[in-house]
């Protein structure tokens, strides 16, 4: 449904995104994850036909964003980073205006308006001036605008910005309910959001895509070692060294006051059984034994910190790609 092929965007000397390539299948929800200034908004603006790419092609629903912008615009709902609201209009007036410039007729507008007011819980404020609404309501009016004509493709730039925790959960539920019937691409720098809502995550950093996969696979494939957490009731003082001496254990981190140890072990090798036998056999009292999987947060930090402190884009990004390349292979098929 969305195909982005080698898209580069330059503002004068500054390169916002470089050779970005990805695609989103029909009915899929994709998260665009990255720190602020990574190029998320630029990519979304290109997809929404707000600005043309310097190089490369972007296609939405089979139409080229540069060649046939009107066809693309008819099929998308776009929520920009700052919700584009006319402060001096009421919610209903605003949504009516948006519906009209989206080419909806009176009947479509009536049903569309009723639907978004209900889904986004805006009914109680529909006669109020947008200027007088709280940030959370304004954000939801922005979302209502994108959903108004029920477009098949939704491009949402930070859809939960400025909402309170309860509203965030509601909007995530809403986006999840769109999956299947709608193709959604949303950007965020909040990691749990990506895990909660999306089937696939694209991590973008400094204008380049550094990883792309499901949230689960991303965290599993970027582990360099298996991590096992062990809690022992009465550890002998030299237990850390004894653990280290075991075959397959690479490193041991100990926290003596709780009796907890974090063991880094060879990749692809499950040492839990041997460790259990080892601890129980010596009579130290095994309280807890479990593998620790990396959260998406760890993955994100790992990927985006690689380039920190390195020289500008050119060689820094090359290096980052080489580092991720070997681990990409096993899971990409």
């Amino acid at each position: 449904m969305i195909e982005v092929q080698g898209v580069t965007k330059r503002y004068g000397d500054h390169t916002a995104i470089e050779r970005v390539t990805f695609s989103v299948a029909k009915g899929e929800v994709l998260a665009f994850l990255g720190p602020n200034g990574a190029g998320k908004t630029s990519t979304m603006r290109i997809l929404a036909c707000y600005m043309p790419a310097t190089e490369g092609t972007a296609r939405v629903a089979g139409f080229d964003c540069f060649e046939q912008p009107l066809e693309v615009k008819r099929r998308i709902g776009y929520l920009p980073e700052n919700p584009p609201l006319y402060q001096e209009l009421t919610v209903t007036e605003y949504l009516t205006f948006v519906g009209r410039i989206k080419g909806m007729n009176a009947g479509e507008l009536r049903s569309g308006l009723a639907r978004v007011l209900e889904r986004l819980a805006l009914g109680s404020v529909r006669r109020r001036l947008i200027a007088n609404l709280s940030r959370g309501y304004q954000q939801r009016v922005g979302l209502a605008q994108a959903l108004l004509n029920d477009p098949p493709v939704l491009i949402l730039d930070e859809p939960t910005l400025g909402l309170d925790p309860k509203q965030i959960i509601e909007i995530r539920e809403l986006i999840k309910s769109l999956a299947g019937s709608h193709t959604v691409i949303l950007s965020t720098h909040i990691l749990p959001e990506a895990t909660a809502v999306c089937q696939r995550v694209v991590i973008i950093h400094a204008g380049r895509i550094v990883a792309e996969d499901t949230p689960e696979q991303l965290s599993s494939r970027l582990r360099r070692s298996e991590k096992i957490s062990v809690v022992v009731k009465t550890p002998p003082p030299d237990l850390a060294d004894r653990f280290r001496a075991l075959p397959g254990v690479l490193n041991v981190f100990a926290s003596t006051e709780t009796g907890g140890f974090l063991l880094e072990c060879d990749l692809g090798r499950d040492l839990r059984e041997e460790l259990a036998r080892f601890v129980v056999g010596n009579g130290w009292g095994l309280l807890e034994l479990k593998t620790v999987s990396m959260t998406l947060e760890d993955v994100f930090l790992l990927l985006t910190q690689h380039e920190e402190g390195m020289e500008p884009r050119e060689d820094g990004a090359e290096e980052a790609r080489q580092e991720t390349a070997p681990t990409q292979e096993p899971s990409s098929t």
Partner: peptide, 11 residues
Amino acid sequence: LRTFELLMTCP
């Protein structure tokens, strides 16, 4: 106020 972005992304 960035509402221009709305106009430019509507058909």
